[in-house]
Write a protein that binds this DNA or RNA. Structure first.
Lengths: 187, 187
DNA sequence: GTCTATATGCAGATAGAC
DNA sequence: GTCTATCTGCATATAGAC
């Protein structure tokens, strides 16, 4: 069952992923989700920031789950990460290079303007890095190396998303996948 | 001599780097630059998109020059790239983690909404990657490996900027610098 | 829970005086 | 070249009926 509240949240994260925070209006969210217009402030009385916070958290946690599942399913370390980034670029490609990174744009836009949204973005990035770190340590890296590499991998992926979305091709992100495979198999 | 036109351009790229495209209003640009209000549409008759295009190009080319200079000045390959990223994080830090990457935010925001701005962002990223590629080839990498690594390095840097701005610390970008040093000295 | 109507403000852009 | 005034539209948010 999909409640009105859930439809609003799903539409919000999708639109914000594609357009960013400022460019996404509440009217557009209502319209696109086909939700009753009066419901938005009923479910999210604190307005756009509250709505965004919840949407970002939900989208971030969905990625976390997919990430954990994929990294655990593959025994080989390099292939585990390579495969995960391949999956991301698949998602990017099948959306016409519009979707890619539910946090990326919003995190940048709100870093210095909305403490509330910034907080949840920090939290999500930390969660992802922790998942990476744990998998790297399990794959044989020392605690220290794993922690540093986790941040680096996170950065490479986010940057790959920027380049792919700007160039309207999955190629940059696929190159990131290839380089990560090399990096993790040689070390 | 700083003309009115130049002041408007400089203020635009600075504000957009910190706040993004949508969040930066023309009124704010006028106000902050201390420019005569009537001048904006005199110098940039095609409006916000034209202004942004020129501001992004100017800022991107400034980075290109600094990049070329720094990469050429250091003989050791790993240190050349490491030092350049260190310099970026220095810039980020001294702006209170607000500035960092004149393209990053704007490139994401306008990727699917303004062909004109998107075009110049693509152009600038290509230019940077070409500079990286040439330096990597000069440092001993094959043509093919250099091209692929150049994109990867570009991605890691842009992603490091996202993480640093989100977390309000230079640390992530500094970690990128460290990992790049490792990557380029072992291969 | 959902509706309509609306308050309020700022956005980008334009016109015309000087 | 610069200024002021203004058009038009959409943004977030709120009030109150049903």
């Amino acid at each position: 069952m999909t409640t009105t509240r859930e439809k609003i949240l799903a539409t919000t994260s999708q639109l914000m992923e594609a357009q960013g925070y400022s460019a996404t209006g509440l009217n557009q969210i209502i319209e696109e989700s086909g939700s009753p217009k009066g419901s938005l402030y009923y479910y999210f009385p604190e307005g756009k920031e509250q709505l965004t916070e919840e949407a970002i958290r939900q989208a971030g946690e969905m990625i976390s789950e997919q990430m954990t599942a994929m990294l655990d399913a593959e025994e080989n370390l390099a292939e585990a990460f390579g495969g995960f980034v391949d999956a991301l670029s698949q998602r990017l490609l099948s959306s016409g290079c519009r979707l890619g990174g539910p946090l990326t744009t919003v995190a940048l836009e709100t870093a210095n303007t909305s403490p509330r949204v910034n907080q949840v973005c920090q939290e999500m990035y930390r969660t992802w890095q922790e998942i990476f770190r744990a998998r790297l340590e399990r794959g044989g890296f020392s605690a220290e190396r794993a922690a540093s590499l986790a941040v680096f991998i996170n950065a490479a992926i986010e940057g790959g998303i920027i380049l792919s979305r700007t160039r309207h091709t999955a190629e940059p992100l696929l190159q990131v996948a290839r380089e990560l495979r090399l990096l993790l198999s040689t070390e």
